[in-house]
Every structure is written in structure tokens, then in C-alpha cells.
Amino acid sequence: MKAAGRLPCPALLLATAALMPAALWMAFVYAPEEKVMGPVQRIFYFHVPSAAVTFASVLVLAVASVAHLTTRRRIWDHVALAATEIGLVFCTIVLVTGPIWAKSAWGAWWTWEARLTTTLVLWLLLAAILMVRGYAESREQAARLAAVLGIVAALDVPIVYKAVDWWRGQHPVVFGRGREAALAPGMLVAFLFCLVVFFLLYASLLCLRVRLLDLRERARDLSDLLGER
């Protein structure tokens, strides 16, 4: 339980707060304007890092879930819950920013392409895990069931991706592929910078959430103790 107290939350927050304005400047001013798509392409600097963070969060969820089931330490459940919630937030950002860009670049809000479909399926799985947590009768039960579902979800995501990729692959999609490969140097720098800042943001949020869950747990333990006396 004491592990959460030693988390470097303030440092992470400070770094994120300092670098986020710079990331905005990089995305909106520093990066050169894309010739064909125009300003709407700039959404890419926030959209792709959010997607990277989402899938990294699934990895965190999987590791924390396995760790919770094997060690039964509460800290791992806190990490799993935080990863589910924050993953869901970033997944929502991906699903909102994606169509805004797609409407202008592809002419359609949505297409059932592998990445889009996988992200949507992941969103549903993460939301379902939070639903089960909400329905659970006790904290221990919520933690166990969510860990089982977290493992299933994390294993499922690559299979869903591959399945949809093959499924749609037989009807080739002409747009979207290989876009990153043709990035101008200025764009690449801005993108990598935003990627780092988004991971910092993710780490700070995760850190704060785990810390908060830990404090809440301790407050509950204390009030239980007082209630007994």
C-alpha cells in the first residue's frame, strides 16, 4: 500500500504542464501545413499519440490484471482500474478526433477499416469492464472480475485487429495507408514531441488516479477502524 505514496506524481504533472503548451505550439505553429489536407491534418498530432496511449493502456491493464490475480495486492487493482478509465478517455479522444479528420480527408465520418473497428471494439470492452465493476457486490469481487475481463480484452484486441484487417483487406481501402511514411521532417519532430507529451500526460493521470484510489482505500480502512471502536 505504501508504494503508491512514493509515486513521482508532482514531477510528472509539472513536466506535463510545462510541455503541453509547447506541444500545442508544435502542432499548430511549428509543424508545416500539409499541402493537400490543409489545417485539418494537424489533428494528427493529437489523434495518433492518443491512439498510442490507448493501446499502451491496454498493455498496462493486462499486466496489472495478471499481477492482481497472482499476487492479490490491491495496488495492482488500482493500476488496472486507472488504466481502464484513462484508456477509455483516450480511446474516446481517438474516436472523436478520428472522424473529424476523416470527414474532411476521406469524405466520410466513418469506415469499417481495421484500426477504426478495433478501436471501437476496444472502447466497448473497456466500457463493459467498468460496467461490471459498477455492478459488483464488493471491491474484491470487482477487482477479480475486472482482472479476468481485462486479460480477455487485452488478448482479444490483436485478434480483432487481424480479423478486421483480413476481412476488409479483401476489399482494398485506398486511403489512409502509409500516411506516416511520407511525413516531412518538421512534421515528424512535432509528432514525436506530441507523442512524448501525451505519454507524460498519461503517466501523470495514471499516477494521480492510483494515488487517489490508494488514499480512498486508506481513508475507508481508517473509518472502518474508527467504527469498530
Binding site: 471494439v121 463493459a128 460496467m131 461490471v132 472480475l145
Partner: peptide
């Protein structure tokens, strides 16, 4: 069943996970 829910929760879990 563990959380006292029925078909609705089951469908919410099963359809995305079984999509492949």
C-alpha cells in the same frame, strides 16, 4: 451471474469480444 445481471450485460461483453 456473479454480479446479479443477465442477458443485457452478457451481450455487452460477448459481442465485442467474440467479434473475430
Amino acid at each position: 451471474a456473479r454480479v446479479g445481471r443477465g442477458e443485457a450485460l452478457l451481450a455487452t461483453l460477448l459481442f465485442p469480444a467474440a467479434s473475430p
